[in-house]
């Protein structure tokens, strides 16, 4: 947790509203972009980039990851690694079985 004086906490509160507004706007952009006439691949890429940006804002500011302790970062690094395995593992298995016929 960063900031303990009253002024620092009030500054954090203003930041929460700024981030909330940014999340609102990014959500509107996500929906607007989905109506654009682009290929499926481009649409997925744009939507995921915006979702990652929004998720990053929530995690960094609302969940205070921008100023957390090392123990939390280590835990999250492991989580991210396992999540990548979880997402890519089945895909790799499918590609492998396709290659083997």
């Amino acid at each position: 947790m960063s900031g303990h004086t009253v002024e620092e906490i009030r500054s954090e509160m203003r930041r929460y509203w700024v981030v909330g507004t940014a999340l609102f706007l990014l959500t509107v952009i996500t929906v607007a972009v989905s109506y654009l006439d682009v290929s499926q691949g481009v649409a997925i890429a744009i939507a995921l980039v915006i979702a990652c940006l929004k998720g990053g804002l929530v995690a960094a500011v609302f969940m205070h990851l921008i100023s957390e302790k090392q123990a939390i970062y280590s835990l999250l690094l492991l989580t991210v690694l396992f999540f990548i395995v979880l997402m890519l593992g089945p895909m790799g298995g499918r590609l492998g079985s396709t290659a083997l016929g």
Binding site: S34, L48, G55
Partner: peptide, 16 residues
């Protein structure tokens, strides 16, 4: 975290 999950669910399920 509940908000974060929805941020990814919304485009994945409803828009793409």
């Amino acid at each position: 975290f509940v908000d974060l999950v929805w941020i990814f669910l919304f485009p994945s399920l409803y828009l793409l």
